[in-house]
Design a protein around this nucleic acid. Sequence first.
DNA 1: GTTAGCACTCTCGGTCATCGAGTGCTAATC
DNA 2: GATTAGCACTCGATGACCGAGAGTGCTAAC
Lengths: 353, 353
Amino acid sequence: MTRRVRTAASLDPRSQSILRAVIEEYVDTATPVGSAALVERYRLGVSSATVRNILADLESAGLLTHPHTSAGRIPTDAGYRYFVEAIADTSLLPPVEQLMIRHQFGQVQHASEQWFRLAATTLAAANRTAGLATPAKPRAAHVRRVDLVTISERLASLIIVFREGAIRQVLVTLSEPVEQEELTRAAVILDGLMAGRTATDADRALARIDGDGAIGTLVRRVGERVIAAIREYDAMVIEEVFSDGLLHVMEAPEFERSEKLRRVFAALENRAYLGQLLDRVAGVGSVQVFIGAENAPAEMRDVSLVLAPYGEPGRAVGVVGVLGPTRMGYAQAIGTVRFVSALMSELVQHIDA
Amino acid sequence: MTRRVRTAASLDPRSQSILRAVIEEYVDTATPVGSAALVERYRLGVSSATVRNILADLESAGLLTHPHTSAGRIPTDAGYRYFVEAIADTSLLPPVEQLMIRHQFGQVQHASEQWFRLAATTLAAANRTAGLATPAKPRAAHVRRVDLVTISERLASLIIVFREGAIRQVLVTLSEPVEQEELTRAAVILDGLMAGRTATDADRALARIDGDGAIGTLVRRVGERVIAAIREYDAMVIEEVFSDGLLHVMEAPEFERSEKLRRVFAALENRAYLGQLLDRVAGVGSVQVFIGAENAPAEMRDVSLVLAPYGEPGRAVGVVGVLGPTRMGYAQAIGTVRFVSALMSELVQHIDA
DNA sequence: GTTAGCACTCTCGGTCATCGAGTGCTAATC
DNA sequence: GATTAGCACTCGATGACCGAGAGTGCTAAC
């Protein structure tokens, strides 16, 4: 899997601008673009014959292809890659769009743990692609709160709130009936023991607890469940991927006959690849683009992903991004993804201070 | 919208079995079925000519159609309806399948609030259709637990656990810094005040609280947020629809050219219709089938829904079901939906006792 | 190096003939 | 009177064929 194709020779400016024109036109129309269309729609200052020569050069450089002899050119994955690395202007998002996005986030300030969903929705709408987002997940989660609530005589609900905002609820069956009062006492002890701690720390603290007496046993027993839950949470590669706007991708003409798309969706449902991808993105720390066949699974070879991590590198990180056909507006996508990821980082920090 | 077409004359047994054969065959093959195919594949004991006569009768009764003159018959929505009401054997699910489903539910006993998701997944897999499920939502939710956790100096997280299992987290900004200790005291008061209560009751209780002093103001202020959150939760028509297996629907040959399907998906994303539908199902209390054009929105006219409520009628109810092409295995679908809904009711009761 | 001109290629869309599945009708049969 | 065999007929699906058009690559002129 070659993720970064370093094009040996960098292109002269005119070739670049023609490559850019081909890509822009193709992204727009989804049909192969010919030399005539280019000179007509872009002020290139040369004739179609010249353009043809350059197109042929770009093709032999591997940046464009022919679906067949008498059709126009379409970009290859390498062409998109070159565009993304050397040509595309991914500078800042226009302030208008920035404001719109900020505004949307302002609307829902109270529902913190839903921010990542909003990010997906926003990205989907802004790019007319699918938007993806995961909640910010710490490498080693810290407990903020432990609580125990009776449900029935021998059944209690154990609630664990993590500093990073996630909540886990676990059912605990009790060997004998326990009053809510006693549960509360146990919860207070556990809470004092574990608040601010990671799984390992909490485990150590629990080990020092006196396991004798009714309350001691209860604390021990439930404490182990808490630690198991933290460990389970830590081990999760990826907590949840929220996606929105899959419809946009379905609408792309290249996916009209849905076979390819079905495979993509199937690959998305199977979280393994996505998890691995997101992990890698989280590790790197800036916007990353995965174009078509650069994606390992064959099913993904017709789509591209633009992903960026958010959060604080050392602590909790999540990923936001978009998924669309390889024929996608990379400049715009990169711009919005970068902006949304920065915005999310800001929000997370604000909460987590 | 006619939901229940009472066919004037009930059919004679032979016509019924031929209608059943047509439907079974069509569900299986997705191609119009002709008289010859029927006599060949089903022991009908009559010639193809006789079958043709009966098919013509069924057609004039509105239960079958012709895509065109020289094609076989396909069932109409009314045909499916008649099949569902009068012919289909929706008796109990084979014990093997029951066991399989039960087993799947047994696996995840600890993650109670995720049951409804599992229901959707199970239904999707069992029927090769999309599975839908909502969490059980009470008409008037009861609070089980209220908790307050500091996040930063002037920011606290208010956690509300409902008796029915749902959890809400709300950020509360404080006018001045408050220690966790004080927050805990406030939380204890609020918890005592509101546990077991509905929004209205809690409101009444809060009104009797002494609003003076630092702690009083805090309790008042947060209490109002709690009540607002309960009210908001109560007002929600439908908390969330979890769906799984949409891929199965995409795979159906009638949706290969995806235009129709795209509309269906779009209609699903817009929750209004689904919410209304689910509300109605929750009100009725048994498996309900909505076939093709019986669905009000035009986008839904190519799909059918088989839905059933679960939970306790007076208290919390949710809905489970499947969505598939009108050409779907109704008998099987009804069987599994009924079974899963019963199972879910059992589980909810067990928890909620 | 650029451009005009042109022959060539290949897809797309339309037309046409053929094929065959399946019907509806009629007349014969049980 | 119900059932069936037989048959003409209908109509979509399939594939061959053809012309138009888009776009190329090449060559020769500028």
